[in-house]
Amino acid sequence: MDDDLRIERVSITHPDAAFLVEAVQEEYVARYGGRDDSPIDRRDFDDPLGTFFVGYLDGRPVATGAWRRSSVKALGAQVTAEVKRMYVVPAAQRRGLARRMLAHLETTAAAEGIEALVLETGMKQPEAIELYLSSGYEPIPGFGYYADSDLSRCFGRLLRTTDL
């Protein structure tokens, strides 16, 4: 497998997206003992509310990432979106694909007028926490479904629309 990641916008119901969403749910079961049961409405990832992406290597779906508009106010931004379903299959990990997907989410969100991205991840995902911190995200107060969870950590990053 080469590292020429091709990122395509798809519906969250697309078979490749569904495959990867199920794979990340299995990862949550392994790490936390259960699936992520935070509410997801598939329409949140349709225009104009958000977008969903699948990353392909050699034609195979290996990564996913999405954002949906959010009411969370963070870092002084008034227009925010929440990162969801960041995942890279184990066979394709440690190649910088998650970082590339995250950068793609930032670029596409900024192009839609999003001022900041926010996200929630768990303490049992130290590689995700490291990715976000090393990508310029900073801790923010808890929000949403897992706001009061001891296992949850929330982060945000202002997007620089002038960098596009």
Rank of each mutant, 00 (worst) to 15 (best):
G76W: 00
M86P: 02
A77D: 01
A109K: 07
K73S: 13
E106A: 07
L75F: 03
M101P: 12
A111I: 08
I114N: 03
E120P: 06
I114W: 07
A116R: 07
A81I: 01
A92L: 05
R100Q: 15
T107P: 00
R100P: 09
A111N: 12
G122P: 05
R95N: 11
E115W: 01
G76D: 02
P90C: 02
G113Q: 06
H104M: 11
A109Q: 09
E112N: 14
R99L: 11
A103T: 14
M86F: 05
M101G: 06
A92N: 04
L75M: 06
Q93R: 15
S71R: 13
V79G: 00
G113Y: 10
A77I: 01
M86Y: 03
S71P: 01
G76R: 02
R94K: 15
L117S: 05
E106M: 06
S71W: 12
G76H: 00
S71G: 14
E112V: 01
A81C: 04
L102V: 06
M86A: 03
P126V: 09
V89E: 11
K73N: 02
A77E: 01
A98M: 07
R99P: 04
R95M: 02
G76M: 01
M123P: 00
Q93M: 11
I114G: 04
A92D: 04
A116H: 02
A98N: 03
A91P: 00
V118M: 03
P126K: 12
V79T: 13
L97S: 10
E127L: 10
R85V: 11
T108G: 00
R95L: 13
P126E: 09
A91N: 06
A81Y: 09
R95D: 06
K124H: 14
A103M: 08
P126Q: 10
V72R: 00
H104L: 10
G96V: 09
K124Q: 15
K124L: 14
A111T: 09
K73H: 13
A98C: 10
E115I: 09
Y87V: 11
V118G: 03
L117E: 11
A91T: 15
S71L: 12
K124S: 13
R95C: 08
Q93S: 04
R95H: 15
R94A: 15
M101L: 13
M101T: 12
H104I: 09
T121V: 05
A128T: 13
R100G: 08
Q78M: 13
Q93F: 10
R100N: 09
G122Q: 11
E82G: 02
M86E: 00
Q125V: 12
M86L: 12
V72H: 02
H104G: 08
A98Q: 10
A116D: 04
K124G: 10
A92P: 04
E127I: 10
Q78C: 11
V89Q: 02
L117C: 08
V118T: 05
G113N: 08
V79F: 08
G113I: 10
R100M: 06
E120F: 02
T107W: 13
A81E: 00
L119E: 08
E127W: 11
L117T: 12
A111C: 05
R94Y: 06
I114Q: 03
H104R: 12
